[in-house]
Design a protein around this nucleic acid. Structure first.
Lengths: 355, 355
DNA sequence: GTGAAAGCGCTAACAC
DNA sequence: GTGTTAGCGCTTTCAC
């Protein structure tokens, strides 16, 4: 006890963090309590260096007694690095990112790392701000779904020795390890499936062309057409931002085409949600009037009627891999590319007697 | 290649974090570059104390030139606190927590705070581990959906002067500000709505009774019965953990009752998902065979057929409030209690000719 | 107005 | 084996 400084503590006049209580003990406190030097305490805690069993016991006793928790700040300062990693997603409330984050958190915990999270809403300025913040925090690494507009910041972070890992998207001219799914292949599979069913007018509600995954998926859609000797109806291909409002409007635009397409590919879960919302809004039936397929196997895909045919991305696993990559864990590969998988349910059917 | 950038700096001999590049400049670097003392640089950066315009300009120039970012670690050590807050949710991949987190992140950014996130899966040991970690990180505050089993840790954190804010749940015997919805009221509204429609055998798929929100919601369900002069059929009331597997099994259990209940209340989105999945699994029709209502207005609630009647919780707003509370922002209230809102859609209808 | 210096909690190098 | 000490980057007090 004692804690002399407290009887009539100097602060606590106006500002008064009244709530604040006892300070956490420091290594010095422990050293004093155990009757040893701070170096010894440090050695006990880190397990490095020799300490007699007897001394060790005393120190451990004091640690337990005083509920000592080494300060990550003090340690960080000395070691010139933290065990924190930054995670920058586009939207934490999107279940795809949520799943990804879950994977990152699980693996980070396993690797004894801590995760500072940012949600950029795909806004370049917010993204830059978060990266700056991560750099100020001296994070060990950053996992991000990067927008294409901040090449400079990313390059700088890399030069500063921060371990970067990009997810889902890749930036031209910047060699950074990544965890991605085979976007081209996934979109190709979805489109090909519809073509095989007999569809010829297939709408495509895609992501922004500024991001690599958006471009790749669109190319998959196009290549599936080309390989089947089909022309893409450009009017039916519309890129969209991932905001709900935007997505809904764009879905409506595709469904406003004349004649109505007989099928629609949505290139992620938000777009899929919008597509289905728009279809409902117009009173159309799936799959009688229109077949709908999408990227991402979200929980609700099986809850709606009919259940939606999707291409899955193993978000959780990608998150785990990203975490392993970012701490440069034992024998981590340079990048991770995983295949998507087509899960056929019943939201797609052959088109109705085509005229 | 090259990597000569460093003519012959003293370090970088054996240890050589090869990947690491240039170190970030320190305040000393800036002071030297600007030809001033470190104290002056600090004063310029903080805006506290007097600095001549001329000096200020020189310092700012150096800061810009060298892309200086003050180290949060150095500052944290000196100031004995960080601007980090810990956020502990039960499951980041659940869209309710995702929305909540989004609110926290948005407000935190606004308040110049950084958020370290943990996902506990409602596991007490994981929760404890995360709290310890937050304490080691010397976070300024913690926002958590606390389990009931770690009273001790929470009490300790509070005594250590860490600003605590509980969300959704409240712990007996621990006076901590909280952001919660009126759980009792929400469940009452849902149940009463079904009763008014004429239902008498209403299943209740609830959360664990160990958490306050679980208890309160169940009580709301019970009170709605009592106020209508109805008996609760105990067999139809089943608490469930929030894992999908568990929830599904418990939903099935309720739907296995003889005779089948005519309606079902699910007390959160995961349970609602399970309920609907189970109903589909059994080939039952909503609302013809069974009315289904739930807590949480998730995006898919309007996508399924029929759209689900729900009680909404403003998750995002709760997250924002929690962030404000945890930094003890200007005139923040002690706690926040918000009302839920019943959103009637078409998943509930009068029971079929009741025998 | 500004520089010098102390000290925050920790680790590691070096005496003993 | 163990204690002492320097120094990580920063803020703040105190001389000047």
């Amino acid at each position: 006890m004692s804690e002399p400084g407290r009887p009539d503590l100097p602060d606590g006049t106006e500002d008064a963090h009244l709530a604040a209580g006892a300070r956490q003990p420091t290594i010095k406190t422990i050293a004093a309590a155990a009757g040893v030097g701070v170096g010894t305490v440090s050695r006990v805690l880190s397990g490095r260096g020799y300490v007699s069993l007897d001394t060790r016991a005393k120190v451990e006793e004091a640690v337990r007694e005083l509920r000592y928790r080494p300060s990550a700040i003090g340690r960080g300062l000395k070691e010139q690095r933290t065990k924190n990693i930054g995670l920058l997603v586009a939207d934490v409330s999107n279940s795809y990112y949520g799943d990804f984050a879950k994977g990152v958190l699980a693996e980070a915990r396993h690797l004894d790392r801590h995760v500072i999270v940012g949600s950029s809403d795909d806004d370049a300025a917010a993204e830059r701000e978060y990266v700056e913040l991560f750099l100020e925090q001296r994070v060990e690494g950053i996992i991000a779904f990067p927008s294409s507009e901040n090449l400079g910041v990313w390059r700088e972070a890399k030069e500063l020795g921060v371990n970067l890992v990009f997810a889902d998207r890749v930036l031209d001219g910047l060699d950074v390890p990544s965890v991605v799914v085979d976007n081209h292949d996934g979109a190709y599979a979805l489109t090909e499936y519809l073509i095989v069913l007999g569809h010829r007018r297939i709408g495509y509600l895609g992501g922004p062309r500024e991001v690599s995954s958006g471009r790749e998926r669109e190319q998959g859609y196009r290549d599936a057409h080309a390989d089947a000797g089909l022309e893409v109806v450009e009017e039916l291909v519309v890129p969209s931002h991932f905001t709900r409002r935007n997505a809904f409007a764009n879905a409506l635009r595709i469904l406003g085409a004349e004649p109505l397409p007989t099928a629609l590919v949505a290139s992620n879960n938000i777009l899929g949600e919008a597509a289905i919302g728009a279809v409902r809004h117009l009173g159309l039936d799936i799959p009688d009037d229109l077949s709908v397929v999408m990227f991402d196997d979200v929980p609700w895909a099986t809850l709606v009627t009919p259940p939606i045919t999707v291409v899955t991305q193993p978000a959780r696993r990608l998150g785990r891999e990203a975490a392993r990559l970012v701490v440069r864990a034992a024998s981590a590969p340079g990048s991770v590319l995983v295949r998507t998988e087509l899960v056929v349910r019943s939201s797609a059917a052959p088109p109705r007697a085509t005229a």
